[in-house]
Design a protein around this nucleic acid. Structure first.
Ligand SMILES: [Mn+2]
Ligand SMILES: [Mn+2]
Ligand SMILES: [Mn+2]
Ligand SMILES: [Mn+2]
Lengths: 229, 229
DNA sequence: TACAAATGTTAGACTAATCTAACAAAAATA
DNA sequence: TATTTTTGTTAGATTAGTCTAACATTTGTA
């Protein structure tokens, strides 16, 4: 069985090599920074994890997870996100409070506990931050990201990011009622001027294609790709 | 902040000096046995906990908790039993499965989490084993123990133990449908032969005073004593 | 290509928690 | 009371995880 520390290293490596972008490798300093330890410390752990066949690592080289290491790391991420969802949905935590506690809960060892939690939460696909929760078999449903401008009429989606960070844009976003991970319905599209009518939390607005181009969304009604990791 | 290990030592000391019987002191070997470590190990920790003013300890003497130590230990017990209740009532664990997982969960640091869990469970007084859950302020509601024979007609109670351990007695207990911590209603008492009519889980039975004298119960409808620790 | 900067490694030290083996004190008993 | 048994302590070693300081390698740039 892995220690809490070992689990944290595997998770950090997963986040650096798989989730943040598809680099597949991470440097020692980078990993140390992610975990808030000194490079010397991370270096020791890298050797230990290589011994256990959980990572690929060679002196002066970058590191990456083995199949087994990836599996373990994904399990930790799954637990983390299920706990975040539980704290948010059943205990009334706010989305910014859940992470810190989940950081502890993710290391509780009990497969049954996680299965039951998953069931209680009705097998959620996303955590309160909108991040994908891996399934029990280690797969991740990756929803296709696109801009609001590309979304089909009638579909429901949610904002996961913006492309413009200017104050005027963000204030406009706010005025329209858009918030991260809040459902957006695309009601119609005017053939004449291409204005898009959306509904957010009961509030209807019309936005321009230029505005919609800068809102990154994931579509709830679209096909999802299963990323097996 | 206390480490998991320190918390476990305080909890063990509480159990030895307060819960098991009112001895108020425990020896080093006894404590070591309770925790599954060697006396030498416990000895080191006793010195450390004395430094932190959490226990009273003198070389070759018995140990006991200070007020602060007791407070910390009770918090751990509270968390343990709230988690057990959660696992039992919300995740369908059986009463014998909950302890092991609660042993891990009791060390999660988040006052808000425990408050909310308490609220979700509707401020329970007892865990699935029938043990008292300390309140947020560190008090324990101690229900008066008596025998079923002493219980008033009309009251509800639950079995918490037996005085006779013979096979014939236990088989009879089983036949009547009695189980640990299951609600028992005392329906009536025949004036003629003193037979007591009870109802357990919908099943009505009549039992003799001799039988009832050997069933230890706590009364749900009786006054409780607040044990401040 | 040579040097400087960035990145990574090693050696040695520290703390927490554990152990074994030897020793010391207290308690029980003959 | 003297001896044995039980109980408790100390010293020294071990493992995991961390650090600092010195050193080595690789990478980027002048
Ligand atoms: Mn998180
Ligand atoms: Mn963690
Ligand atoms: Mn328990
Ligand atoms: Mn514990």
């Amino acid at each position: 069985m892995l220690s809490t520390t070992e689990e944290n290293y595997l998770k950090a490596l997963l986040q650096l090599t798989f989730e943040q972008e598809d680099k597949a490798e991470a440097g020692t300093n980078e990993l140390a920074a992610q975990l808030g330890v000194k490079p010397a410390t991370a270096n020791d752990m890298l050797k230990k994890l290589r011994e256990k066949q959980l990572i690929h690592y060679e002196k002066y080289g970058k590191s990456s997870l083995t199949a087994e290491g990836k599996k373990r790391a994904v399990e930790v991420v799954r637990k983390h996100r299920l706990w975040e969802t539980f704290l948010y949905e059943h205990l009334g935590f706010t989305w910014d409070e859940v992470h810190e506690v989940a950081e502890q809960l993710e290391h509780i060892q009990s497969p049954k506990l996680i299965d039951r939690l998953d069931q209680l939460l009705n097998y959620p696909s996303f955590d309160p931050h909108g991040d994908v929760i891996p399934t029990a078999s280690g797969e991740m449903k990756i929803p296709a990201k696109k801009t609001l401008n590309e979304e089909q009429v009638g579909h429901q989606c949610k904002m996961v990011g913006v492309k413009d960070n200017s104050a005027t844009f963000l204030q406009y976003v706010d005025k329209v009622g858009l918030r991260m991970n809040q459902p957006i319905k695309v009601l119609s599209r005017q053939p004449y001027d291409e204005l898009i009518e959306i509904e957010v939390n009961g509030l209807k607005s019309s936005v321009s294609p230029r505005f919609a181009e800068n809102i990154v969304i994931v579509c709830n009604d679209c096909e999802i790709r299963m990323k097996s990791i």
